[in-house]
């Protein structure tokens, strides 16, 4: 075990370009990560990072601003509102699971001490459904996106503030796993997430400009022209894994939940602005 782990960790330490050593605390990582992007894009205002690639691509941005005039995700928000208000077969509502709802996006992902795992919003939604005798929704495509769109819209303006509680070492472990995932090269093409979205953010890969990792989690679900509909963050993770010819992981499985935990923590302080629209 030990022998297997070592090379990965050394690789990680060198890999980052920003040297996020694995011994660093999350607070130190956060500072380094955010400063790296502030320095790399000195003209981009802080809140602008929530707009993804359009913070660094003036041409794509014009197009996007035109699209946002008549947002393609709007019908999904409406459908999500209906879902939120409709009673389950047992007469209960989502509100019974989420008394502070529907504006609850900023509470996720969070460390659940009792369950000993990272709980994301889609997972919490399905936990609620199951507890009320309803079938769980699919995690990448379909109806869950409508409900998430409504919740995201109601949560606009809240700030990302993921907490890594100090009283449970397993939370830090989950964070570290997500971080390791982000910096590990994988697939036949041998890319890490960081290769594209840290090291080469702002560069063009063929004709696509690569977005900075900072802000990647603020606007889900997102309507993608390529998808022709709204999809979840884990659907996007799947796509980014596939394009390097790596086998994607399961949506809402441990790997992607830990990845979301790390990645969202890195955007702490940024406003939530979902649902999003991207090309």
């Amino acid at each position: 075990m030990r022998q297997k782990l070592l090379p990965i960790i050394t690789a990680l330490a060198i890999l980052s370009g920003l040297p996020m050593a694995s011994a660093a605390s999350p607070e130190q990582d956060l500072k380094k990560f955010q400063n790296y992007f502030k320095k790399k894009f000195p003209k981009v205002k802080w809140e602008e990072f929530a707009n993804g690639v359009y913070a660094v691509d003036p041409i794509g941005r014009e197009n996007w601003e035109a699209i946002e005039e008549f947002p393609p995700y709007e019908p999904f928000i409406d459908e999500g509102e209906e879902m939120w208000n409709k009673a389950f077969a047992n007469g209960k509502h989502y509100k019974d699971c989420f008394p502070d709802g529907p504006a609850i996006a900023a509470k996720y992902p969070r460390w659940d001490k009792a369950k000993g795992m990272v709980v994301t919003l889609p997972l919490a939604i399905n936990n609620c459904r199951k507890a009320n005798g309803e079938k769980p929704l699919k995690y990448k495509k379909g109806k869950i996106n409508s409900l998430l769109a409504y919740i995201a819209f109601q949560s606009r303006g809240q700030k990302t503030h993921v907490v890594i509680p100090k009283d449970d070492p397993r939370a830090l472990e989950a964070y570290e796993k997500g971080k390791k995932f982000y910096f590990t090269k994988r697939g036949q093409l041998n890319f890490s997430c960081a290769n594209c979205h840290v090291q080469n953010a702002g560069n063009k890969i063929r004709s696509d400009i690569l977005s900075p990792a900072l802000g990647h989690t603020t606007h889900w679900p997102t309507y993608r022209s390529k998808w022709g509909t709204v999809g979840t963050l884990h659907r996007r993770f799947t796509g980014c894994n596939k394009q390097v010819r790596a086998k994607p992981f399961k949506a809402q499985g441990e790997q992607y939940r830990d990845l979301e935990y790390f990645l969202t923590y890195m955007s702490n302080g940024l406003p939530l602005n979902g649902p999003g629209a991207r090309k």
Binding site: A11, I14, L15, Q188, L189, N190, Q199
Partner: peptide, 18 residues
């Protein structure tokens, strides 16, 4: 390409049989 630069973005076309 990772021989010369371990963090390179360039895929290892031979080593990974691309």
């Amino acid at each position: 390409a990772t021989k010369a630069n371990p963090i390179t973005m360039m895929p290892p076309f031979g080593r990974h049989k691309i």
